[in-house]
Design a protein around this nucleic acid. Structure first.
Lengths: 203, 203
DNA sequence: ACCTGAACACCGTTCAAGT
DNA sequence: ACCTGAACACCGTTCAAGT
């Protein structure tokens, strides 16, 4: 095992991901990261171009994962079953053993990520995923439902307060609610919707 | 009209709210705010104890509004009608003419707000609102649905991309989807869950 | 190739001093 | 009461210099 060669770069990534997720990107200083690794601040700049670049480094893998997911969805028929399979796979990447922390980092740091290029890329992929989820129904309501079904997955691990709830149960819960939202996509337009009056322009 | 006396403090609040919402709290420097008002950075510290304190100043009104909302909900019967009325009133404070920007600021700055005391207060109120929304059904699924219905209101003004969609239409859209989520709260536990059709429990 | 030391401009904050 | 000027420690970033 060679841990002296390429080790430092990976150690920086690991420590940064941990601290960024715990305390937030802005609140975590490079000095803090450097101290944990017993190097100087300047040393970080040998391995990364900037603070943003550290984020970009552990974002790229995730982007490919998202792309694969969207590509798969586009190759499937635009049915409810596909939508459900898609959200289930998405939940896998969120709760799965691989890299749960990367996605949690995103949930935690949405704001800052808007100005970071890697963050914008990630946002773009989320939009595409949402689009894939409401393929065949481009109504505003469908967009909102699709987006919320993704949010259900994200939300389930912080909005649900229960004594000893497991990750598996959170996942199941998220999918239960997400499925309901997805089931309402592509259905025939509402005849007796909540408020008869405000018709709403079609097309 | 006296604009020389108490004017400065209000002007600081206004400019700060605008810049914080546009660019984010961390990315906006006090120098930037001061320059817009033709004063020095130090002048801001006469009116506010710290940068955080500026946020706290325009948060307090909102807290009272949230408290009033929760209190009203608690005084009503725990029915679907109450839940729908509550989310509708919440949407009013989000889309209403009063102070739409304060809530948008929150949506934009969630991350930073976690470490700010005023942000934690706000989070607390959101939790209480969610609890009020699922009163009578304390199951994890109900919590998730309640939280997502609030998110529907927040999400409707950035997740829905449509040519010339108005604020009113976004509001109506949000409530349409939120109502569906709320209708599933307090219903008898699922016997034949997710599958069948889009049936949906009628409260 | 890998890292240090010292400097840079900027940040939020403080405080004595001015009117 | 209201604001300035100058200083403080900290931040991200750069770069010549060391091995």
């Amino acid at each position: 095992m060679r841990e002296s060669t390429g080790g430092t770069r990976e150690r920086i990534k690991a420590v940064a991901l941990e601290l960024f997720t715990e305390q937030g990107y802005e609140k975590t200083s490079l000095r803090e990261i450097a101290e944990r690794l017993n190097v100087t601040k300047a040393a970080l700049y040998y391995h990364f171009k900037s603070k943003d670049d550290i984020v970009a480094s552990f974002v790229e893998d995730r982007l490919e994962q998202m792309d694969a997911l969207t590509a798969w969805a586009d190759s499937q028929p635009a049915t409810l079953a596909t939508r459900r399979a898609l959200i289930s796979r998405y939940a896998d990447t969120m709760f799965g053993g691989d890299m749960p922390s990367v996605m949690r980092f995103f949930e935690q740091n949405q704001t800052v990520l808007k100005s970071l290029s890697s963050g914008q890329q990630m946002r773009g992929r989320m939009m595409r995923l949402a689009s894939a989820l409401c393929r065949g129904d481009d109504s505003p309501a469908a967009q909102l439902r699709a987006t919320l079904s993704l949010f259900a997955v994200h939300t389930s691990w912080f909005a649900v307060r229960a004594p000893g709830i497991s990750d598996g149960e959170r996942r199941r819960l998220a999918l239960e609610v997400a499925d309901e939202l997805l089931a309402a996509i592509g259905a025939e337009p509402d005849e007796d919707s909540a408020s008869t009056s405000t018709a709403g322009a079609r097309g």
